[in-house]
Design a protein around this nucleic acid. Sequence first.
DNA 1: ACCTGAACACCGTTCAAGT
DNA 2: ACCTGAACACCGTTCAAGT
Lengths: 200, 200
Amino acid sequence: MQDTTDRPYHHGDLRRALIDTAMAMLHEDKGWQFTLREVARRAGVSHAAPYKHFPDKASLLAEMALLGFDRLHKAMTTAKPNRPHSWRDEFLAVGQAYVDFGTSNPGLYRLMFSAEAGNARDVHLSERALAPLGVVIALLERGQAEGLLRQRVVRGRAAACWAQVHGITMLTMEGLFQLEKVGPNPLDAALATLLEGLEN
Amino acid sequence: MQDTTDRPYHHGDLRRALIDTAMAMLHEDKGWQFTLREVARRAGVSHAAPYKHFPDKASLLAEMALLGFDRLHKAMTTAKPNRPHSWRDEFLAVGQAYVDFGTSNPGLYRLMFSAEAGNARDVHLSERALAPLGVVIALLERGQAEGLLRQRVVRGRAAACWAQVHGITMLTMEGLFQLEKVGPNPLDAALATLLEGLEN
DNA sequence: ACCTGAACACCGTTCAAGT
DNA sequence: ACCTGAACACCGTTCAAGT
């Protein structure tokens, strides 16, 4: 349903429109393997128009991944526990927010972590990918300062948290954490194990 | 370099040849996003020939993923610690074998865990994907029996191990565990955290 | 029983030309 | 400054026809 009438030739802000359209398409079957031509089609422009705003498809994907990391970062920083405010509650809230972000945006999350998509992961993207890790590092430092956590090198522990939570997210996304043999609450079990590895 | 002379028309075992060729192509840039036509080309047959052995590309990929899970399973069961034979050594050896398998076969590993590739992950594939998990479950049961591990629901702890090790593997593959900010030995740190979460 | 060649409906990307 | 249309070199998949 495109209005081809009110934008006779020049699209107001095609760049943003393309990103928005592609972001929406991420929620469909093919994930980030959508077609650039289809994006253009839905944005109401010719299939050549996107090339005036992005050198190629990979560049569009890279920009979208960047956006994704920003959103993940925001999801983690705005995550708050329901009621009490113990360190442990906050930690679990952040972990849950991370997993929720991934499982409710599987297409975007896969894109963010696919070196395959935007061919080479450039420095810019890698830097932005580490912002979420910064949240975890700060959280662990506070936990150690409060004497709740074992005294271990924080960056190493943060890496462990990241890997754990990334693994949970991906396996859930692939449907492998919903299988009987894996047990009833793999997510809770994984987070509990992680906490037992961190706490005093 | 195809011998088109000695196989004038009928290829002896084209099915296997296609799988082998595709498996080899997994190690190239595009990973499992290789082209079916290119597989046929390298196998020395027409681009239509593969369709006599696989209904579509997704079926070929599914078969390859199955093979991958078998190999991963074997890598885990044949993993042995260097010298001593404590439970802990064995656990670490299995974990390391898992990560090594993934990082040295990134194309295959990504394929195994991409619901995107073989469209729907069928029951067959999911079952085979759980064989590696079985190894971990057995390992944890022994550790608990020997009184080394906390008494927790084994399947839950096994899920935690899987997620941890899967996360490590993927983040390493994507190059995110080689970044300075993540620290010097994220892999070791992650495995150490996992062990501290399991052990008494 | 197994393979080929031509064909169909697509892609990503480029580029001269239009507004 | 921004967009289009035709073109190029590809895909995956199908199907009548060949051996």
